[in-house]
Amino acid sequence: MPPNNPFIFMKRKIIIEIISSLLILLFLYASVSKWLAFKLFIGDMNNQPFPNWLTPWIVWSVPILEVLIAVGLIFEKTRVPALYASLLLMLAFTIYTVAILLHAFKFIPCSCGGVIRKLTWPQHLFFNLFFVGISLAGIILKKSEPVHAVEV
């Protein structure tokens, strides 16, 4: 099969759409969960092993960043940067989860929202690694898309 086979192109496009949709759902769910339980989220942030003066910055920037990434994933022109942002954010969450599993902190706070809060830390790790993996797969698939000539 030649590399520009329309079937392969459509299959790649569908997989990219599924990846983007899963990430959009994740980030919108996470941000809305934080805003719906905003006082709890602030309290959780104050219990993190970070200085409390960072709390106001974190409680606003993380949910806003999650929404911006979700919006970026919707549009074709911003999808690749949004996939990279998704990868970086999920890597940061994964590194934090690994630090918790390695007992790097005196206590184990969780600032996740909604049902994600109910995961154990090993489950968090696998959950995060799944989204790291699909973010990376989305980047690879988008980068390997054939470039079509623009018709004049």
Rank of each mutant, 00 (worst) to 15 (best):
F75A: 02
P146Q: 12
W60T: 05
T94H: 03
A37I: 00
M10T: 08
L68H: 00
P6D: 08
V152E: 15
F7M: 08
V115H: 01
V67I: 11
L83V: 11
G43S: 11
W60K: 06
N46T: 07
L91Y: 05
V67G: 00
L88R: 02
A99H: 10
E76S: 07
G43T: 10
K142F: 08
T120M: 14
S135Y: 02
N128K: 08
I69T: 00
C110W: 11
C110M: 12
L40A: 01
S21A: 13
P49V: 12
L65K: 01
P3E: 15
H124Y: 10
K11P: 01
L25E: 04
I140H: 09
G43H: 07
I64Q: 01
G133I: 05
G133E: 08
P63N: 04
T78W: 02
Y29V: 03
W60P: 00
A137S: 08
L119P: 14
A149L: 15
L125T: 12
A37E: 06
I64Y: 02
G138D: 06
P56D: 09
I140C: 07
S144G: 04
W53M: 13
N5L: 13
W121M: 13
E66R: 00
T120E: 14
N46A: 08
W53Q: 13
W57A: 11
I95T: 09
I116Q: 02
L101S: 13
V59F: 06
M10C: 06
V62H: 07
L73D: 01
A30V: 09
L119N: 14
I24N: 01
Y96T: 11
V152I: 15
P81S: 04
A85I: 01
V32K: 03
N4G: 09
A137G: 03
I58K: 10
W121H: 15
F130E: 10
F50N: 12
K106R: 14
A92F: 13
L68R: 00
Y29F: 13
F126I: 14
R117P: 02
V150A: 12
I18E: 07
M90A: 04
F127A: 09
I24E: 02
S21E: 05
D44L: 05
V59K: 11
E76A: 05
I139S: 02
L136M: 10
N52W: 11
